[in-house]
């Protein structure tokens, strides 16, 4: 069983009734866990006061 540490933290936030009617649930959860772990690592960055950068370079 893959540990779902990061996923469990978010479980309470998930919309009730998300209907993922697929036999691949275990694979989806494992993939999600890896993605969330990488995203959670971003908390190590000094993000205070940093605004999003959507990379819109339309103005020279």
């Amino acid at each position: 069983m893959v540990p779902f540490e990061h996923l469990e933290r978010r479980a309470a936030d998930l919309l009730v009734g998300v209907a993922l009617t697929t036999p691949d649930m275990q694979a989806i959860l494992a993939q999600t866990e890896r993605v969330l772990a990488a995203i959670d690592q971003l908390d190590q960055l000094p993000l205070d006061g940093v605004e999003p950068d959507f990379l819109n370079r339309s103005q020279p």
Binding site: I39, L42, D43, L45, P46, L47, V50, E51, P52, D53, F54, L55
Partner: peptide, 10 residues
């Protein structure tokens, strides 16, 4: 969070 991190990484 990804879009904010993007600024620092860039």
């Amino acid at each position: 969070k990804g879009q904010r991190a993007r600024r620092l990484i860039r």
